[in-house]
């Protein structure tokens, strides 16, 4: 696996940014050298799985916003691959406070300043924050 000629050259998302990663391998004499790799299927599968997991979380969150079980903040949190501690850290709020903002009734009464804070974190307008896109 680790011989120079055996360094995996599978197709991967690295292609989208036109680069390859550096890996270590041994040459014919058994000396360590470096070789570029375009990707390796087992890890591409792992990454794909992680991405699919996130997509599922996003679509679940969307459904819950539609059902008025949560506020759009949770949807955007998932969309940005965040979890509660990360979002709380960006907002500068305690976690329980962010969690409270997930309640649709609380969300509706949020001050402009607070809404603007969330909108800035997600790089969107307040209008977009209040109305999640119809379909992804």
């Amino acid at each position: 696996m680790v011989k120079k000629e055996e360094v995996p050259q599978d197709k991967s998302v690295l292609e989208s940014k036109k680069f390859r990663e550096l890996t270590y391998a041994v040459d014919k004499n058994g000396d360590y050298i470096t070789e570029l790799s375009s990707g390796w299927d087992p890890k591409t599968i792992a990454l794909d799985n992680a991405i699919r997991e996130i997509e599922e979380r996003v679509s679940k969150a969307r459904q819950r916003v539609m059902n008025e079980e949560t506020s759009p903040i949770e949807y955007y949190m998932e969309l940005h691959k965040m979890d509660l501690p990360i979002l709380a850290s960006y907002a500068g709020f305690w976690k329980w406070r962010v969690k409270r903002h997930f309640k649709p009734s609380v969300f509706k009464k949020l001050k402009h300043k607070t809404l603007q804070k969330y909108a800035d974190i997600f790089d969107i307008s307040i209008d977009e924050l209040k109305n999640i896109p119809e379909k992804p």
Binding site: V2, T23, Y24, A46, L47, A50, E53
Partner: peptide, 28 residues
Amino acid sequence: ANHYLGQIVRMQEEIGTGGGGFRYIYAA
């Protein structure tokens, strides 16, 4: 379980590890 397992593999093989959870870099 599969998600957890995938995460282990990613930590082990992702960019930056040089493959094999840094074991090849250490061998070098």
